[in-house]
Design a protein around this nucleic acid. Sequence first.
DNA 1: AGTGAGATGGCCT
DNA 2: GGCCATCTCACTA
Length: 189
Amino acid sequence: VGVLRTLPPSFYQKKTEIVAQRLLGKNLCRRWRGKVFRYRIVETEAYLGIGDPACHTFGGRNTQRVQSMYLDGGHSYIYLIYGMYYCLNVVTKTPRHPEAVLIRAVEPLQPEKDIHTDGPGKLCRHLHLTKKEDGLSLWKKSSLWIEDAPAVPKKNIVAKKRIGVDYAGSAAKWPLRFYLRGNSYVSRQ
DNA sequence: AGTGAGATGGCCT
DNA sequence: GGCCATCTCACTA
């Protein structure tokens, strides 16, 4: 266990497909009721902005809901889906290129009972993440942040098509979902 | 394995 | 009024 420093904003200003893969193995940290809980990121999806029909900012859409995607890379973007679940994203790049990485699954790094972190909706419920945590700076240790950890070997990263975006035409088949091979906390193999 | 329906509500057109 | 970056359960085969 080395020194746990947060990932700097520059980490998030690279190509979104790269950030999505490099986030695997990093530690999502949540302060809740005075205690800190850490979770290893094991599954992500990249959303490529104005040219990606599956992305909320497709075609330059800039509505109230997606405001946080127009922040600098390294901020959180949390939205409500299906009236029931929140989804956590990490904004990448710059306001001129509003892209993001969806955090789909994490692995608890401390003992917990009733673990339900395999899926974007379930992990937000487990970590008590809501609109309140939207737009936060993830390089600051406030209530939600991300710490560095050793890089994952590329051999251990699987790329598949994204889930739940069949409406997006051919973009639904782009291999932008990444997860750690064989990890039991991934939402589906 | 894959498919489909229902729960449920903010937001977009 | 319709649409979802979900989840669970109930089917089919």
